[in-house]
Design a protein around this nucleic acid. Structure first.
Lengths: 196, 196
DNA sequence: CGGGTTCTGCAACGATCGTTTCAGTATAGA
DNA sequence: TCTATACTGAAACGATCGTTGCAGAACCCG
C-alpha cells in the first residue's frame, strides 16, 4: 500500500463543523477551514472533494454528536416521566451560558434553513428531516410526561414545544435572553397541563 | 441647482428589498441589485453609500411596508376581539400560497438573525427590536381575545404565540407546510383557552 | 531496500466580490 | 445662454472566492 493519512478524520470534521456552525456555509472560507482543521486545502479537497462535501459530512457529524445525544433520553423505548423537562432545562442552561456554542451560534441546521444554500433540495430535505426528528422525540417526551396515550391536545402541545425550540435556536444569536425565555415558556406550558 | 434624480427612491428601495429578502444580505451581489433596481452601481453608491447602507434602508422599508401593516390591527387603541386570529389566518394563507414572498423567502429579519451579518451589533439590535414589536402586538391581540386584564397565563400564551410565528418564518423555506401547521397550532392554542 | 501509491505543500487558476475613479451628460438657477 | 452642480455610465481597482495541477515527501508492502 502507501502513505498513511497524517490526521484523524473525525477531528478534522469536528473542526470544520465548528467553523460552519459559527459562520455558516457560505461565509466559511477555505483559508478559515484550513487553519481550523490544520490541513492544507489539498488534503481537504483530496478527502472531501469540495467545500460542499466537507459541509455535508460536518452536518452529519452535527446530527450524530450534538443533536442526537441531547435527544437520546427522549428516544428510549421507555421514556422517563420528566425527560422532556430535563431536555428543555439542559437546552436552557446552554443558552444561558453565553460561551456555549448553542448560545453564540444557535443551531447549525436552523441557521442554514434561512441561508441561500437552503435552496438546494438536498439541504432543505436534511433540515426538514431534522425538524421531524426533533418533533418525534419531543412528542415522545410529552406523551411520556402526560402519562396517557396521544391525544389531539398532547399532539398540539408537542407541536408547540417543537416550535418554541426552533424559535429559540433562531433567535439565539440576536437575543439569547429571549431564546432562554422561550424554553422557559415551553416548560411552563407542559407543566401547566399536568396541573389542570 | 443641478440635474434631477431620474428614479423614484422608494421604487429602488423596494426592488433592493426584494433581492435581500430572497437571497439574504451576503449573497446579494451588486450586479443583482443593479438589474433589480435598474440602476447603475454608481447611482446606488451615490445614493446609499454602500451595499450595507442600501440594506439598512431596505430593512426599514420591510418594517414599514410589510411587517407593520400586518400588525396594524393589533396595535390599535382598541383591538378587535378576533384580530389575533385574523392575523394568524392571514399569515397562514400567505404560507400556503407558495408563490408569496413570505412562503418562499420567510422573513427578511429572521433570516438575517442566523446569518453572518447578525454579528453586527446594530443589525442584531434591529432584529431583536423587531421581535419585541411582534411580541407586543401579539400580546395586545391575545389579551383582547381573552377579554381580561393580562395574567401570567395570557402572557405565557403571548410568548408562545410569538415563538410559533418566529418558528414558522424560520422554517418557511425548507418546510412551508410545517410552517403553516405551526400557525394553525398557534391558533388552536388561543381558541382552546376560551373554551376552558 | 526499492517500487508503487498516497498524502501534502506551493502556486496559480479564472471568476466574482464590493468599491472607487473619472469623464461625460443633463438639468436648475442666474 | 452660461455656469455650477448633481446624476450616471463605463471601466478598472485590489481582494478574495472555490478549485485545480503538479512536484515532492512520506509511507506500506514485497
Amino acid at each position: 500500500m502507501a502513505r498513511t493519512q497524517a490526521f484523524e478524520r473525525d477531528d478534522v470534521v469536528r473542526a470544520a463543523r465548528t467553523v460552519f456552525w459559527r459562520t455558516g456555509f457560505d461565509a466559511a472560507s477555505i483559508p478559515e477551514l484550513e487553519t481550523a482543521t490544520g490541513l492544507n486545502r489539498s488534503s481537504l479537497y483530496n478527502t472531501f472533494g469540495s467545500k460542499r462535501g466537507l459541509f455535508d459530512v460536518a452536518v452529519q457529524s452535527y446530527l450524530d454528536e450534538v443533536v442526537r445525544p441531547r435527544l437520546r433520553p427522549l428516544r428510549a423505548d421507555r421514556v422517563e416521566h420528566e425527560a422532556i423537562l430535563y431536555y428543555l432545562d439542559c437546552l436552557r442552561t446552554a443558552f444561558e451560558n453565553l460561551d456555549s456554542p448553542s448560545a453564540s451560534n444557535g443551531c447549525l441546521l436552523i441557521n442554514t434553513a434561512g441561508s441561500p444554500i437552503a435552496r438546494d433540495e438536498e439541504v432543505a430535505r436534511i433540515v426538514s428531516d431534522y425538524r421531524s426528528e426533533l418533533r418525534e422525540a419531543i412528542g415522545a417526551g410529552v406523551t411520556a410526561f402526560m402519562g396517557a396515550p396521544p391525544s389531539p391536545e398532547s399532539e398540539r402541545l408537542s407541536d408547540s414545544t417543537t416550535g418554541l425550540v426552533v424559535a429559540a435556536f433562531a433567535l439565539a444569536r440576536v437575543a439569547p435572553g429571549e431564546a432562554s425565555r422561550l424554553l422557559q415558556t415551553a416548560r411552563e406550558q407542559i407543566t401547566a397541563v399536568r396541573a389542570a
